[in-house]
Design a protein around this nucleic acid. Structure first.
Length: 579
DNA sequence: GCCGTTTTCGGCCCGACTGTTTTCAGTCG
């Protein structure tokens, strides 16, 4: 049972308790536990095996027992008992925007609405209007929420969210009365996908800002608009929330709206213990006198902590690390010197010439580039001769450009189903840089894929495992395999793991980065560029690495070209070569 | 149900906005 399954069951228990009028603090406890499990950077099963569940925040003896039952037997009696009290479809009604537990409870108990279909019927036949406080505006908004839910796409990938956010911020910064404007929320924490976009504006003229905001191009509908808070939906379907605060509250508001919720609760609880109150308007002493809040740093200072980078604010140990003076110095884009996974038009799915790629890399300030086209098992991929031809061309272009950037010869070689590589080891051993990736047979049993990856790692000619989990966000789940075992092999062989910065891959993800670091495995943040514009995507990979607590020393391509290789220099397993 | 430098009981973050009300419940973040 995966972390996500355990988290979902705990979340369902919270929903059911809430619908049946359970203790609201108990509801919150289950919800907090679900969140902890969902964002846990290792399999919950491992924590359970070593008997450490109650060491996790928000997991006490009761919920630890639930989780134990779930992992041991696949279901928990407590969950099943709760589930009998509420029809399954009722829980789904809670997913509708603007529909909460009290509304669902009333629809269910008073009207017999048990799922999306019967809600639709209750709207159509007018019976929904019989509920208290249910006027025509609410009914319309519920109907629209229902339609959106049915036709909804997944969460917005970060690069698209950023595109909208930067466009709006650019205009807001020029609007009357705007002193500062920044993105907050999950976007500022650089999550891989965001549910909505949170913008924060500093101004003494909230009314002018509000008017500018709702008039921004692309706004399809104004959902709410008040003195300090407004929400709109863009034509693209994404919701954007705006908060306007005065300068003296800027730092407090930026912290508050950056979240995460659990991080904020921890900070506030620390503040309460010190006799302080922290809200989005500032820091207040026990006489309600403002003692700070203009700068975000003051929030942390008030609770005795150094400033914590937004990417770490997930209540996953950052507060404890800050307290102990052990916050990581997170890797930055400027630390990354080169890109080690790039395709030229020698790959059938890529377009750019090596020269174009090199010039763009130089413009972006990269000092080296590995040309790693696909090998022969991909359609029209390179055979031995092709690899050598591309390598020779790379050397020629490097000379023509005066050695800036350095061009490393390489290949992205396929890991075949049995774990062997689809080019001769002698050839691979002679290249500057070898990426090995799985591009086929994603549905093998976990043991086989694990063995497949480990055999490639042990080949002695591989520098980097490309997109190690194979997932594509919103499209393809990771193939099943034992990441821990693969990391262990990679650590032993000095092979790096990729953080593929393609925004639909981001593979490894943040949690896996943290595991890699703990396993002593370096990552390489690279673009997997298929045209020159992709080279700029590196920043998305850097954000993933930062969310995974990685420092520059954990990222191999923060090193100059001469220090990239860790595998035995030009050595490889002779037995493998003979196969 | 969780948690603890006000601890094993008694708290648990809290303010903004909307729609439906004529004072506020519900939802959201």
């Amino acid at each position: 049972m995966e972390n996500a399954d355990v988290a979902r069951q705990l979340g369902e228990m919270a929903d059911i308790l809430e619908l049946t009028g359970g203790n609201p603090f108990k509801v919150r406890a289950y919800r907090a536990a679900a969140q902890v499990i969902d964002t846990l950077p290792e399999p919950v099963e491992e924590v359970w095996r070593r008997g450490a569940l109650t060491d996790l925040p928000s997991i006490g003896t009761g919920i630890a027992e639930e989780i134990g039952e779930l992992l041991a037997t696949g279901h928990s009696p407590r969950h099943d008992e709760l589930a009998r009290q509420v029809p399954l479809g009722v829980l789904e009604l809670l997913r509708l925007e603007g529909v909460g537990p009290r509304t669902v409870e009333a629809m269910w108990k008073q009207l017999g609405v048990t799922d999306l279909d019967s809600l639709e019927a209750a709207i159509a036949d007018g019976s929904l209007a019989r509920l208290p406080r249910m006027g025509p505006v609410r009914i319309r908004s519920i109907r629209e929420a229902l339609e959106r839910y049915r036709g909804r796409g997944s969460r917005l990938p970060i690069h698209r969210a950023l595109f909208y956010a930067e466009g709006m911020l650019g205009r807001l910064r020029k609007a009357r009365g705007v002193i500062r404007a920044e993105a907050a929320g999950s976007l500022r924490r650089r999550m891989e996908t965001v549910g909505d976009i949170d913008l924060l504006v500093c101004s003494e003229e909230p009314e002018a800002v509000r008017r500018a905001f709702v008039a921004l191009p692309g706004v399809a509908k104004v959902l709410a608009t008040g003195e300090t808070k407004s929400s709109v939906r863009l034509e693209a379907g994404v919701q954007v929330d705006l908060r306007v605060v005065p300068p003296e509250s800027w730092g407090a508001a930026l912290h508050y709206f950056t979240g995460s919720k659990r991080h904020n609760v921890s900070i506030r609880t620390r503040a309460v213990r010190r006799g302080l109150k922290i809200n989005e308007y500032g820091i207040f002493d026990r006489h309600d006198r403002r003692i700070g809040g203009e700068r975000e740093e003051e929030i942390f200072e008030a609770v005795g902590l150094p400033w914590i980078p937004p990417e770490l604010r997930e209540a996953n140990g950052e507060i404890e690390a800050a307290e102990a003076g052990r916050l990581p110095v997170l890797v930055e884009e400027a630390d990354v010197l080169g890109d080690l996974h790039v395709h030229s038009r020698a790959s059938t799915d890529a377009r750019a010439t090596i020269e174009k790629l090199a010039l763009e890399a130089r413009r972006l300030g990269r000092s080296y580039l590995a040309i790693t086209d696909h090998s022969r098992s991909r359609p029209l991929g390179l055979d031995e001769e092709g690899v050598l031809r591309v390598a020779a061309e790379a050397r020629r272009i490097e000379r023509r450009l005066g050695g800036s950037p350095r061009l490393l010869t390489g290949v992205e070689v396929d890991i075949l189903p049995d774990g062997s590589l689809d080019l001769p080891l002698e050839l691979l051993a002679g290249l500057d840089w070898v990426v090995a990736s799985i591009h086929s047979r994603f549905h093998e049993p976990a043991e086989e894929t694990t063995a497949r990856l480990i055999r490639a790692i042990r080949s002695g000619v591989v520098d980097l495992i490309g997109h190690p989990t194979g997932r594509q966000i919103g499209k393809r789940d990771p193939y099943p395999f034992d990441l821990g075992a693969v990391l262990e092999a990679a650590a032993a062989c000095g092979v790096a793991m990729e953080v593929n910065a393609m925004p639909d891959r981001l593979d490894l993800n943040d949690k896996a980065c943290r595991l890699a670091r703990e396993a002593g495995v370096q990552v390489v943040i690279d673009s997997d560029a298929h045209n020159e514009s992709h080279l700029a995507n590196l920043r998305y990979g850097v954000w993933v690495a930062r969310r995974g607590w990685l420092e520059a020393k954990d990222v191999r391509n923060t090193r100059p070209p001469g220090e990239l290789r860790r595998r035995g220099r030009r050595t490889y397993d002779a037995a493998e070569a003979a196969r």
